[in-house]
Computed example of a mutant assay.
Amino acid sequence: MSKKMWVALAAAAALSLSGCASTASQSGGTSSSGGSGTPVSIMVGGLNKQIYLPFMLAQRLGYYQQQGLNVTLQDEGAGVDATTNMVAGKVDGVGGFYDHTIAMQGLGQSMESVISMLTTPGEVELCRNDLKGKIKSPADWAGKNLGITDIGSSTDFLTQFLAQKNGVDPASIHRIGVQSGSTLIGAMQHGNVDCAMTTEPTVSTLLATGSAYILLDMRTASGTTQQLGGEYPATSLYMSTAYVNQHPDVVQKLVNAYVATLKWIQAHNGTQLADVMPADYYAGSGKAAYAKAFDNEKGIYNLTGIMPPSGPPTDLKVLQAFNPDVKGKTIDLTKTYTDKFVQASK
């Protein structure tokens, strides 16, 4: 974790612990399932990204209300900032990459994933089309401007690891926070970044316009193993260990909703999904492209919600390669996730 993130966490901890406002419809990056159920607030590192699909999909399918929950989803451009808000007590949980629980343990913060939703990162490294032939692999990254969601984000972790793995000192690359969607697309099209790590539907949008080409693809198990050396569990719902211990009934209801959502994903295709999701989720790429992107990467979603046993060590290996807050420290992976709620789900 970067110095910037540590400063952000410290600053956030000093903020008031006021709760999150609940709204009845999607507005201003906030969406509530409504109803009179138990209130729960979750901040997601990019609600419209397909890698975080289960969070909004569970709401659209009514699964939160079925569990007696009134879940407020807040949109945040980067998982690192969502984690900061949870540390400050402003949200109850985070929809983000599992690797943050490892990084935070290195800083003395106890957080745990309560359900695993992706068995691969679903990330794609795109480069500007005018650089084709000049950037053929991460070995060509020295001195280049590389787009990530934000400093301290999972895309930052992965970008630095890939650079180092390919013989490039992470200090020699320029990592620039461009989030995703329109901001990342603008940065790419205006030449502010040479390459960028992103997900669907942004990938399809850039490929359709001819603005970029794929340098590497981690939307499949084989692609992930090739780049990272093994399975890399990504999207999860993670919460502070204190919250999990104090509210096991609420956590169980959330997990029940997400297990049902993961089953729905496996039983439906992209067209059926697009019919359920808000129209602005595919406004940039188009409904047909959104549906096709889902069908192409459907294999990224966890079939059961159980953490892949071989996954956490891969996440740890990536962080220990370069992250000073994890490197050289003893990390107890058994405390970074739990499967008990998934196993108890009906």
Rank of each mutant, 00 (worst) to 15 (best):
T183I: 14
L316N: 00
V91P: 10
L162A: 03
G286A: 01
T119N: 09
L207D: 13
Y290L: 03
D169I: 12
P170V: 05
F161I: 07
Q252M: 09
Q227G: 09
V7R: 14
A14V: 06
S36T: 04
K4V: 10
A283L: 11
G45P: 00
E200W: 01
D92K: 02
G28W: 06
G28V: 05
I135P: 07
Y290Q: 03
S22D: 07
S27W: 03
V250H: 05
P248G: 04
G167F: 04
I306L: 15
T30S: 13
L228S: 05
V276Q: 11
A12P: 04
M239R: 03
I185L: 08
I176E: 09
G37T: 04
L9C: 04
S110V: 01
A13M: 04
I151F: 12
P39W: 10
G167N: 14
G177Q: 11
A221E: 15
S345L: 11
L216Y: 13
V44L: 05
H247G: 11
G152K: 12
S18T: 15
K90L: 09
Y337C: 11
N296H: 01
A13W: 03
A293R: 02
T38W: 13
P233N: 02
A11E: 14
V178R: 12
V80Q: 15
R128Y: 03
D194Q: 08
T205Q: 15
V40K: 10
Q105K: 01
A291W: 00
K4L: 10
W141A: 11
K298G: 07
P313I: 03
L126S: 11
M104R: 02
D156H: 09
P248A: 04
T205A: 15
L15I: 03
Y52P: 01
A187Q: 01
S116V: 02
V255T: 15
G122A: 00
G223I: 12
Y258K: 15
A11N: 14
R175P: 14
A234K: 00
G79R: 02
T304M: 13
K4I: 10
D325M: 06
S22W: 06
L216M: 13
I173H: 15
G305Y: 15
V80P: 06
V94D: 06
G270D: 11
I265K: 15
M277Y: 02
Y98F: 10
L107P: 00
I306V: 14
A24F: 04
Y337K: 14
E76A: 00
L53I: 09
T261Q: 09
A11I: 12
L53P: 09
G37W: 05
G230R: 04
D332V: 08
F161W: 07
N323W: 05
L262T: 06
G230S: 03
D92L: 01
V87R: 10
Q266K: 13
S36Y: 01
W264G: 05
H268G: 06
Y301S: 04
T159D: 13
D81T: 10
V71H: 15
Q179Y: 03
E231A: 08
V178I: 12
G34R: 12
V259D: 05
L273H: 03
L254T: 09
I148V: 15
I176Y: 05
K90T: 08
S27E: 07
A234L: 00
T241Y: 00
G35E: 01
D315P: 02
G223W: 11
L303I: 14
N48S: 13
D325C: 04
A142K: 13
I148E: 10
A242E: 12
L333H: 03
V276I: 12
